[in-house]
């Protein structure tokens, strides 16, 4: 079974892009090819592929993290409407290159090769892959779904973690300071 997204519908969706971060990841023009209906019918398949994608982009990210691929399917971000198409594209590229019909079954190096393939493809595909990579990184490193969680991988603690002054600065600041040009911090 094949499901066709009409070019008109796709362009209409693209036209709804909001500005700023929320607008990220959505190419202005995409050649939306037909993709297997199963990617629309089976959200677990999409989830598996996207998890394999994100753990390739961010090795060390926990594959079972419930928030790992949430940004890519979050209806508040425009990428969500292309998540199934993107998962299908990863799968198609993986199969074409390595003969393996399941992207998540590829080795990490093979998955990386598939992603590189997308990042070096035509301008529209490049835009989609760039957007997916960066949105995944933003969501993971910033910990956008849990204010207090942050990202342990990079030592970001998130919000609401109070630090005493002794942890914010060094006890001997004079050892660091250079000569000042002004008496009060304001240039003349």
């Amino acid at each position: 079974m094949q499901d066709h997204i009409s070019r008109r519908l796709a362009l209409k969706h693209f036209g709804l892009i909001a500005a700023g971060l929320a607008a990220a990841c959505t190419p202005a023009r995409v050649l939306v090819n037909a993709y297997p209906q199963t990617f629309d019918d089976d959200p677990e398949l999409v989830d598996r592929v996207l998890r394999a994608f994100v753990t390739t982009v961010i090795p060390g990210a926990a594959a079972d993290d419930p928030d790992l691929v949430r940004a890519l399917t979050d209806p508040d971000y425009p990428f969500a409407q292309f998540a199934a198409f993107f998962a299908a594209d990863l799968t198609r590229r993986g199969e074409r290159r390595f003969g393996e019909p399941a992207f998540e079954q590829l080795t990490p190096d093979q998955r990386a090769a598939v992603i590189r393939d997308g990042l070096e493809a035509d301008a529209t595909t490049r835009k989609m892959y760039n957007g997916a990579v960066t949105l995944a990184q933003v969501a993971f490193y910033a910990g956008i779904y849990d204010a207090q969680r942050g990202c342990a991988l990079i030592g970001f603690e998130g919000g609401y973690h109070w630090h005493p002054l002794s942890e914010i600065t060094y006890p001997d600041p004079a050892l660091f300071l250079a000569a000042a040009l002004t008496p009060d911090g304001n240039a003349a």
């Binding site: 600065t169 660091f176 300071l177 250079a178």
Partner: peptide, 23 residues
Amino acid sequence: VEEIPKTGLVFAHLMRNLGYSVD
């Protein structure tokens, strides 16, 4: 002085190494 964050102190350190001023 005693509230300058570590990044500010390191910046000052780099500038001082080159004989530059920091306020």
